[in-house]
Write a protein that binds this DNA or RNA. Structure first.
Lengths: 332, 332
DNA sequence: AATCATCGCGCAAACGTTTGCACAGGCCTG
DNA sequence: CAGGCCTGTGCAAACGTTTGCGCGATGATT
């Protein structure tokens, strides 16, 4: 392995100069900088990152913590973040919390151990507060939150525009002439789901409808719960559902079909997330698309700009987009 | 940040002893080991990984390189690998090659820079040989390949049983009474696809059918190409298709539907990968399931066992599993 | 011409951990 | 009882990079 000392010897300068040259310091002559980088290339030099990290007190690595990596939303977000970070010379360490608070704490400790320059995370559903995040990271570690965020932790937050997304989805159902629109909702403790709930409610009241708590089903964003919720909703007179998730919306489709209702004629459905399957199933399902890759990109960019002292990134809201498909399109 | 020296001072011993105690060396008294670990816990010590890596010459990090992280197969594999590696005290650095040879080389360089203990990878489709892998990694770096492997690189290889998977899928179509079975195939250069092709061929010849190159469509594992391939296949008299990918199989479904054929009565289809959507679409699609999470686990385990000098892991073949659904089930 | 800022580079320490070697004391063996 | 072995710990160097400080030389300013 070739080191900066080797380069220094080959050029008759000191390691200090080589280090500065490679770092692009203005305090080294252009000609030597050129000589150094040429020689480095020739000798096939690669920086010893651990040594650099040790000396600098932090590494060129950014940690990303997500509940699960094998979910389309998170893997796409990571993909986007990784692409941007690589462009800036950073690598990424991935950790999964498995929606588990203890695992999340472990991940934070690991990342601190590795002296990461920053952490990009979307917290586990079982993490109620963000205290552990601050406790287990150095105070100079940049923290970027995305999707699931704790307001009380300062720093960049990249989120979906859940409110307007849900608003549009619900509004669309009303426009299509559906009379009584239920809601399959998520965890009450998660901000993202709360915002979707608010968007749903506001769309109703804006259009002169009443909000009826009997047809709002919390904690129901898995297929099976969506199925059950939809059956109840139909019993209670609903002719449409806005679901805060696509899987639960799929359950709702099955419930409606099972009860002999025609979609979209008798029953309308709009989901959320625009999972791949929504465009393939029969009928194809309307859904509110999020843009995970873009969210990942934004999160990484927020990290990069946070690097410069002074530059503050606040909350970035990424628009969602209603994609109308067969399941809710009654009037063509 | 508390260091081993801090612990040493607090206990009246030297850093050497603390280091050895924490490493579980047998050369330190049980009582001191206990005292050290208690004190470490009390003071909230976390090892400085960069320092450790610098001294040891390698880190507790394993690099994983995949074409794209936001594909179900790879993200699940990573998930499985990450889980196992974490249990053994390793972190993972993720790199994407974007199917691009140059990016793959960059990733290898990055990982070497970080002095990773090992690399788990599935190479980019544009990497024809594995030379760059050996060139850009230290010779003591453990290399574990999965899914897409270069035979010429020694070390563990974790692969799907592509041959038998494809064999079963094709065999099943024959059993269901389909007369002329086409094949939507992948890159000729990729071993995995080649094995699927061989499985398809062998199933035909084993059952006394002839292999007809006119109904084998290479490089067609995306939806659109699958669609086109299927149209041609139908023109050429096929009443069934085995596809080496699910997306291309989906294209085939659309092609058949578009030509007014009933599935599975007039036309049978079996895909590969068991993507989530196959169980949702109409008709549901038969597919040959792979087990990416398990493959990831095996890859990580292979890395762990390779750590012990002498222990050699060869090729691990993970079974695939035919999942029969509506698209190929003519005889009930 | 004297003073001073600037430029370009070298010196040397420091980051925290690991590990080969040395060594003191206790035990065992012959 | 002498010699040797084992146990448990300390000493000190090393890993490769970065960076504050210092210093000579060059050019600009008074």
């Amino acid at each position: 392995m070739v080191t900066i000392s080797d380069i220094a010897k080959a050029l008759g300068v000191t390691p200090s100069t080589v280090s500065r040259a490679l770092a692009g310091s203005p305090r080294v002559k252009d000609s030597t900088r050129k000589a150094v980088s040429d020689m480095a290339a020739e000798m096939g030099y690669e920086r010893n990152e651990p040594a650099s990290s040790l000396r600098k007190g932090h590494s060129n690595v950014v940690g990303i913590i997500v509940p699960r990596i094998n979910r389309a939303f998170f893997s796409s977000a990571i993909s986007g973040a990784e692409t941007v970070l690589n462009e800036h010379g950073y690598s990424v360490i991935i950790c999964q919390s498995h929606e588990n608070h203890e695992d999340e704490v472990k991940a934070l400790k690991t990342l601190r151990s590795n002296r990461v320059a920053g952490v990009i995370l979307s917290h586990a559903s079982s993490s109620i507060t963000g205290d552990h995040i601050l406790e287990n990271l150095g105070q100079d570690t940049i923290i970027v939150q995305f999707d699931r965020v704790f307001k009380e932790i300062s720093g960049p937050k990249i989120v979906n525009d859940n409110f307007h997304g849900a608003y549009e989805g619900t509004h669309h159902l009303i426009e299509q002439g559906y009379k009584r629109i239920g809601n399959i909702a998520g965890y009450k403790g998660t901000l993202a789901y709360l915002d979707r709930l608010k968007g749903y409610m506001r769309a109703l009241t804006d259009m002169g409808r009443e909000v009826d708590d009997d047809i709002i089903f919390y904690d129901s964003i898995v297929e099976k719960k969506g199925y059950e919720a939809a059956k109840l909703a139909i019993e209670r007179g609903c002719d449409a559902i806005y679901s805060a998730g696509d899987f639960s919306a799929l359950g709702a489709v099955e419930a409606a079909k099972g009860l002999g209702l025609r979609i979209p004629e008798d029953f309308g459905i709009v989901g959320t997330a625009n999972e791949y399957f929504t465009s393939i199933m029969t009928p194809t399902m309307s859904s509110i698309a999020q843009h995970p890759y873009e969210i990942g990109r934004r999160a990484a960019q927020a990290f990069i700009t946070s690097l410069k002292p002074g530059a503050e990134v606040g909350e970035v809201v990424v628009p969602m987009e209603l994609i109308v498909r067969e399941s809710s399109l009654r009037k063509k």
